[in-house]
Design a protein around this nucleic acid. Structure first.
Length: 264
DNA sequence: ACATTGACCTGAGAGC
DNA sequence: TGCTCTCAGGTCAATG
């Protein structure tokens, strides 16, 4: 479920594999994933050019072309990138394939087609048009920014933290992880969070995002104290060994420890 | 104007 | 074994 740590891992992978090589061929297997761009326009903009740098905002990855525009990638819940030497290794749900001069290919695989591929003249305009909130890992994103963003909303804290217009990059899995470390119940109303709890959530959010990004967003590499590897029915809390509970918050399944994350 | 719900997408796994 | 049903969750339109 590509959230901020996953997409940041994809960005680093993109940097390590796909910059500074002339694009020879563009193949779109599933045109329905394209947003505000035609197959023809995408091909024309990419072919003969190179990617020169990348950026990330929330769950969106931006790759800048040497002619100035940006390829925009969003991964839905099943998307990932794979850099290939041989075509026989092509992943099973490749929706976009970019071929480079050196014979290698970058595949964008998205089984459930909930991802989006787009093109933008300006990455900042794209973020504004989507009305994305601030990226929590942006340098300078501090507690006052966090507090201002969250307290501008009503309703349950999980809905607020997962709302991309409030803060961009956190989804179902990582919001649960953050609430677990902060000892906050996912259904707690935002307006009933005091300053101290908000600050704790902010610190835990930073810590969780940094730690999981360092570990390439792979749950089997997460510390033993993390909830994510135990995010299933019948699992035990890594802190108190009590049973992990689940409930629905705004249509999503939330996992939490009823003992460590008190009601309210 | 805001918060919440349902639809979209596809395949894995449950249950009969 | 094989079929059907449910569920996963990111986002946006529709509903409350």
């Amino acid at each position: 479920m590509p959230e901020l740590p996953d997409v940041e891992t994809f960005r680093r992978y993109f940097d390590a594999t796909s910059l500074h090589q002339r694009i020879a061929k563009v193949t779109v297997y599933a045109p329905e994933i394209l947003e505000d761009v035609s197959v023809r326009k995408l091909s024309r903009r990419l072919k003969g050019h190179e990617f020169e740098s990348t950026k990330r905002h929330g769950k969106y990855l931006f790759a800048r072309l040497d002619e100035g525009s940006w390829l925009v990638l969003h991964f839905g819940m099943t998307g990932f990138l794979k850099y290939l030497k041989n075509m026989d290794k092509e992943p099973p749900h490749t929706r976009l394939l970019i071929g480079f001069d050196n014979g290698y290919h970058l595949a964008y695989d998205c089984q459930r087609k909930l991802g989006v591929v787009s093109l933008s003249d300006n990455e900042t305009d794209f973020v504004n048009r989507k009305r994305l909130g601030p990226d929590p890992m942006r340098p300078g994103f501090d507690f006052p920014d966090f507090k201002e963003a969250l307290t501008s909303t009503r309703g349950m804290i999980k809905s607020a933290l997962m709302n991309q217009n409030v803060i961009a990059g956190i989804g179902n899995v990582y919001s649960d992880e953050i609430f677990f470390h902060a000892g906050v119940h996912p259904k707690r109303p935002v307006k009933r969070l005091d300053e101290e709890t908000l600050e704790k959530m902010f610190k835990k959010m930073k810590r969780v995002l940094r730690t999981t990004t360092d570990r390439q967003a792979q749950p089997d590499r997460f510390p033993d104290s993390y909830l994510t590897p135990h995010r299933r029915k019948g699992a035990r809390c890594p802190k108190c060994r009590g049973g992990i509970g689940q409930l629905k918050v705004s249509g999503r399944t939330a996992y939490y420890c009823p003992r460590c994350q008190g009601r309210k």
